[in-house]
Amino acid sequence: MGAYLVKRFLLMFPTLLGVALVTFLLIRVIPGDVVELRYSGDRGAVSQEVIDQERARIGLDQPVWKQLGTWLIGMAKLDFGTSMWTGAPIWDEIRLRFALSLQVAIMATIVAVLLALPLGVLAALKQDTWIDYAVRIFSIAGLAVPSFWLGIMFILVLLIVFKWLPPMVYTPFWVDPWANMQQLIWPALAVGYRYSAVATRMTRSAMLEVLREDYIRTARAKGLWQSLLLRRHALKNAMLPVMTVVGVEFAFLIGGLVVTEQVFNLNGLGLLFVQAVSHRDYTLIQALVMLVAGIFIVMNFLLDVAFAWLDPRVRYA
């Protein structure tokens, strides 16, 4: 088990380095330049002198290999530098947004898990009954409806029916839990519904597969209570693929709620990502990609650890 974990842990570093190199090179291929964008403004008439001066100041006049070297050395020291657009330290740009995105991701995961587990298990147990059909319709609708569209519907209903709109400014939970919930519950529900649809279908199919296994039939033949059988033998084994889905979706939510964040005017990482790309803010894009990649890699690592713990076949393989 220990050797397995060490091997998995060490594999994270070459993966991160690969992501860093690909990101660094790809964003420089896209046309556009942070300096031109910042100073062209609405009049589009900035002088070349100003542009050259600013490019030199932020190091864009340096050869690409030198820029890459400086960035990799900084990253090794966990120093991501400053934003090319605002001049502020990258961590300052990310910190507040990260807290919001993390909270939405956690809330959406709670919504998804609370819906997916009972519904998925119920649908599997009542396969091909009206209950199963209802759950399947509910989950297919969740897959078909984009969460940003559901978000827009929430906004419209709240505005037109209740003449109310969620707050436009984020208040941290520890400052004012009520204001915080008023703003974040809606995106959490909108995103959580789609997320639950994926998890519900996975739970149902995994449960169906497990329920057909010989050891379940044996346990039933021995007269084991249904609830005990479900909890101890079926659900635990069916959870492996569900955990993968939940873990990957959770990581995705940290930086992937671009449109939903726009709909609810959430100051999250997704929106910051879009702004960074549209500003061609290389340092910020690189830092955000590394952050999201890091979250995915760590999440995968944790899932592998959990698998090894839950399924001995993994750690002995």
């Binding site: 827009i152 906004i155 709240l158 505005l159 003449k163 109310w164 709109l165 707050p167 436009m168 400014v169 726009q262 709909v263 609810f264 005017n265 100051n267 929106l271 702004q275």
Partner: peptide, 19 residues
């Protein structure tokens, strides 16, 4: 209080919702 809202539909919603 200046609230930064990039999406034009969210700006309209903010005025309409009296935020």
């Amino acid at each position: 209080r200046a609230v930064f809202i990039t999406s034009s539909s969210a700006q309209v919603a903010a005025v309409r919702g009296e935020r």
